[in-house]
Amino acid sequence: MNYSKQVQETVEFADLVNKIQSLLDYLGLETSELEDEREHAVKTNQPVYHQAINNNIKQIYVTTSTLLAIRNDIESMHDDIQRHINKEKKALSQAGKQNDNA
């Protein structure tokens, strides 16, 4: 087995995209709940509570943005690995044809 294929299998086994997506899903649910609480804080005139909720929503936004960037990097890495595997397969195939012709 060639090195590129081993790297691809290792990356796929780690399943990083799905792990990150699980975190993004969880943070989305948390944000939804916080928005409901923020609405309640506004209705009941609790400015300190409202501000604390806003801060939590901002923290989740930053975390979500970072996770999205990581997910995009992982997807790009997967594409690069696949491109290198295809390039390697093509080179091996051409080397095999040259040996057959010799």
Rank of each mutant, 00 (worst) to 15 (best):
Y61V: 03
Q21P: 01
V7H: 06
Q21D: 15
S4K: 15
I85Q: 00
Q21L: 13
V11C: 11
K43Y: 02
I70D: 11
L27D: 05
T10W: 05
D25E: 11
E37R: 08
K5S: 15
M77Y: 14
K97M: 11
G96E: 02
K5D: 15
D79R: 05
V7C: 06
M77N: 12
E37F: 05
V11H: 10
A41W: 00
L34P: 04
M77T: 14
H50M: 11
D80L: 02
T10E: 03
L67E: 00
P47K: 13
V17E: 04
K89A: 01
E88H: 05
F13P: 04
D25S: 14
N2Q: 03
V48K: 14
Y26K: 15
E30H: 09
E35V: 05
Q51P: 02
N101R: 07
T66F: 09
I70L: 14
S4Q: 15
N72W: 05
I70Y: 13
R83A: 08
D80E: 06
G28Y: 03
N55V: 03
A52E: 10
N18I: 04
E88W: 04
D79E: 05
N99M: 04
I60A: 02
I81V: 05
K97S: 10
T44Q: 13
Q51A: 08
Q46W: 02
Q46S: 09
D36Y: 06
H50P: 05
Y3D: 13
V11K: 04
H50V: 10
Q82V: 07
H84S: 12
A91Q: 07
A69H: 08
N54C: 11
E35H: 09
T63D: 02
I74Y: 09
M1E: 08
D15S: 13
D100W: 13
E30M: 07
E75Q: 03
A69I: 08
E12R: 09
H84Q: 09
I74H: 02
S76G: 06
K87S: 07
V7R: 01
L16M: 14
D36V: 08
R71L: 01
Q82F: 05
V42K: 13
Q21T: 14
L67P: 00
H50E: 15
H78Q: 12
K19N: 15
Q98R: 14
L67S: 00
M1K: 11
Q94G: 10
K97D: 12
L23H: 15
H84R: 13
D100P: 08
D100H: 14
K58D: 10
S32L: 13
K89T: 02
